[in-house]
Design a protein around this nucleic acid. Sequence first.
DNA 1: AGATCACTGGACAACCTGTGCAGTCCCTCT
DNA 2: AGAGGGACTGCACAGGTTGTCCAGTGATCT
Lengths: 155, 155
Amino acid sequence: MIDELDGRIIELFALEPRVGVLEASRRLGVARGTVQARLDRMARDGVIRGYGPEIDPAALGYGVTAFVTLQLRQAGGHDPVARGLSAIPEVIEAHTITSPGDMLCRVVARSNADLQRVIDLIVATDGVERAASVISLANQITARTLPLVRAISRP
Amino acid sequence: MIDELDGRIIELFALEPRVGVLEASRRLGVARGTVQARLDRMARDGVIRGYGPEIDPAALGYGVTAFVTLQLRQAGGHDPVARGLSAIPEVIEAHTITSPGDMLCRVVARSNADLQRVIDLIVATDGVERAASVISLANQITARTLPLVRAISRP
DNA sequence: AGATCACTGGACAACCTGTGCAGTCCCTCT
DNA sequence: AGAGGGACTGCACAGGTTGTCCAGTGATCT
């Protein structure tokens, strides 16, 4: 899948995104073409999904994160609900989960009071029966993939 | 917080990360220095957390995602547990949540069978009493912040 | 009014990227 | 053994980009 050099390339770019391909090749002790080829291959294979800027909702005033479990009306399925949810910008992520007729989504809000507004929006979505939310008090481990990459590339 | 131009800058770089500052300034119809200054400011304010490559665990063979709710032994607190969890690469994210003594984490695994192994690792972590997991069947909305950025910057 | 701030437009040197190519090494299949 | 394919190296070139600085302008704040 990915070998050790791939892992080191990912790691380097994750830690210092501003280094260019040339500088990376120097640091890793390989030819520039190699780094370039590896990056191209990983992008092609979907391992590297992109390089978009990571936005922190908290810095934008959306400091409250919550996980909302949705119970759906059985008829209609998940997709229409997902479509409805995607119209709510505060819904950052949504998954269909194992409990039949359920979804789990991650939402952000400006405050606990604002969270109420967001949840109301969610509950008002067609197909949503009930919503149970859990507020995140602290983000102990923030979305990370580096350890996994390391584990995979250096067995 | 951020204005419309900031929003359009973020949007442009999110959709086409490879465009440089110069090209971006051309597309947005502003001076290069302006784009550069905005990016610098947003990076300084923490709005843009970084530009690291986004890794897709699924493309790495970790196609199963699950959300695991942990019940902790009350004594000891969350931090030691978080430290223990961070040693498990498959734990992508972890939050302290509202139910006292609970944590919620997002984990990935190679298969359902492999998920069992990961959960066993989690349960074996010091301070963890019980774990209840929910498997993600489909990722209806994948981590997105663009709609939020748009909503904030264009009220 | 005066000061401050953000933006523009331009300029410069240094550097990086995209690309192509020849040569080497190594593994695999015949 | 020998051929073929794949990956890597080292190098070269043109063109574009970055980092940086500066003067000028308009709008806003004091």
